[in-house]
């Protein structure tokens, strides 16, 4: 008695979903990239994460903060996995404000792995003022904070174009194919050969965009690899237990004349 109606239910729902494309016609869908961290067993490409960190450090970090990450995260499993010495060296390359000391004075010292990533500006207002009134968002969870996630971030990075005829842009505003409203206040900072990769990879715009997006995806979800690994184990365990319980149920219910 229920079956034909389920069909009706599914049909009407599909009909509803199908009117969706009428909606956001002006926005261009982000480019779909076959990321290594996609899927049930996806993991990050270690080399890409390390290169991505380099792009972040040399390009993005001059405007964007990443305040929820610590330098120690760079050496933790599931991330770029820099060695302990490398992490210490990276941290020590930043001057971190600390204090107050016993005299009540603030002082600076070389960074330690336990320090949070140093922000380029002291506060949001300073960052906004220094960037023509547009706050460069903190990048710690940026990939999770944008519809389309990693695909969207990558698309924006490679989506700079000359504005189509008829579109005029104010000073400090740039045209981007994938940005909502097509106007972005971040200039196109990537150009071929900008970064000299330590591992010798050719630093094309596309390569740098992919690497830094991979790095940002890890920064937003540093638990991703462990989550995927644990998830597979949990599901296998649950499926086996479900089968055992199902068989027990069948056996118990076989004592009476009712089907279960």
């Amino acid at each position: 008695m229920i079956k034909p109606n389920i069909k009706l239910l599914v049909l009407s729902f599909l009909l509803l979903i199908s009117i969706r494309p009428l909606q956001s016609a002006e926005m261009v869908d982000p480019i779909r990239v076959d990321w290594s961290f996609k899927g049930l067993t996806g993991t990050f490409d270690r080399a890409s994460l390390q290169r991505g960190f380099q792009v972040y450090k040399e390009v993005c970090a001059s405007c964007h903060s990443m305040q929820y990450l610590s330098y120690r995260n760079l050496g933790e499993p599931g991330g770029p996995e820099f060695s302990e010495q490398e992490v210490k060296a990276i941290a020590a390359s930043f001057e971190i404000e600390d204090g107050p000391d016993s005299q009540g004075e603030m002082f600076t010292r070389p960074g330690k792995p336990s320090d949070k990533f140093k922000s380029p500006y002291p506060n949001v207002q300073a960052a906004t003022a220094a960037n023509g009134g547009a706050y460069p968002p903190d990048m710690s969870v940026l990939v999770k904070a944008r519809k389309g996630g990693a695909n969207y971030i990558y698309s924006v990075l490679v989506g700079y174009e000359d504005p189509p005829p008829g579109v005029t842009l104010d000073d400090g505003v740039y045209y981007n194919k994938y940005m909502a409203g097509n106007k972005i206040k971040m200039p196109n900072n990537l150009m071929d050969g900008l970064v000299e990769y330590a591992d010798g990879t050719e630093s094309t715009v596309d390569q740098m965009a992919k690497d830094v997006t991979t790095f940002l995806a890890w920064a937003a979800e540093p638990e991703l690899e462990e989550r995927h690994k644990t998830g597979v184990k949990v599901i296998i365990y649950l499926v086996l237990l479900t089968i055992l319980v199902y068989l027990s149920m069948k056996k118990i219910w076989s004592r009476i004349d009712t089907e279960v």
Binding site: Y246, M249, W253
Partner: peptide
Amino acid sequence: IKDAFALLVFMIIFA
């Protein structure tokens, strides 16, 4: 036992 079976199926979706 029947509730346990259904709960486990639910937990798989949850997980």
